[in-house]
Amino acid sequence: MVMLALMLALVKLASESGLALPEILFWRQLPTIMLIPMFLWWRGSVDRLKTKRLSQHGVRAFLGIFGMFLNFGAVTMLPLAEHTSINFTSVMWAVILSALLLHEKIGPWRWGAVALGFAGVIIIAQPGDGHLPLLGALTALGSAFMIALISIQIRDLAQTEDSVTIVFYFALFTTPLLALFLPFVSVEKTQEQWMWLIALGLSGLVGQILLTMALRYGQVASVIVMDYSSLIWAALLGFLLFDTLPPATTWLGAPLIVGAGILIAWREHRLALASKTMSPVSAEPS
Rank of each mutant, 00 (worst) to 15 (best):
M3W: 12
M3F: 14
L4W: 02
M7Q: 15
K12V: 00
K12Q: 00
A14T: 00
A14E: 00
G18V: 01
L19I: 15
L25P: 03
W27G: 03
M38E: 04
L40M: 01
W41M: 15
W41E: 11
R43F: 00
V46N: 10
D47H: 13
D47F: 07
K50E: 10
K52L: 10
L54W: 13
Q56L: 14
A61D: 00
F62M: 06
F62N: 07
I65E: 02
I65G: 04
F66H: 09
F72Y: 05
A74I: 09
T76H: 01
P79T: 07
L80V: 06
S85K: 03
I86M: 05
N87P: 05
T89Q: 12
V91P: 13
W93A: 13
V95N: 11
V95S: 12
I96N: 07
E104P: 09
E104C: 10
G107H: 03
P108A: 11
P108E: 06
P108S: 04
W109Y: 15
W109I: 15
G112H: 14
A115D: 05
L116H: 02
G117T: 08
A119D: 07
G120D: 01
V121A: 08
A125Y: 11
D129Y: 13
A137C: 15
A137N: 12
L141K: 08
A144T: 14
F145M: 14
M146E: 11
I147W: 13
A148S: 15
A148I: 11
Q153D: 03
D156W: 10
T160V: 12
E161F: 09
V164T: 15
T165I: 06
T174L: 06
P176R: 13
L180I: 05
P183G: 07
V185A: 00
S186R: 09
V187E: 11
V187G: 04
V187C: 04
E188P: 02
K189W: 04
T190I: 13
Q191C: 09
W196M: 02
L197D: 08
I198H: 01
I198G: 01
L202D: 07
G204H: 00
G207V: 04
Q208I: 06
Q208A: 01
L210R: 01
L211G: 01
Y217C: 00
G218P: 00
V220T: 11
A221P: 06
V223N: 07
I224A: 14
Y228N: 15
S229A: 15
L237G: 05
F242R: 01
T244R: 08
T244H: 10
P247F: 09
P247G: 10
A248K: 13
G253K: 02
G253M: 06
A254K: 11
I257T: 08
V258R: 09
A260K: 03
G261P: 14
I262N: 06
I264H: 08
R267S: 06
R270C: 05
R270A: 11
L273T: 04
L273I: 04
K276E: 15
T277I: 11
S279A: 14
S279L: 14
P280G: 05
V281N: 01
V281W: 09
E284V: 10
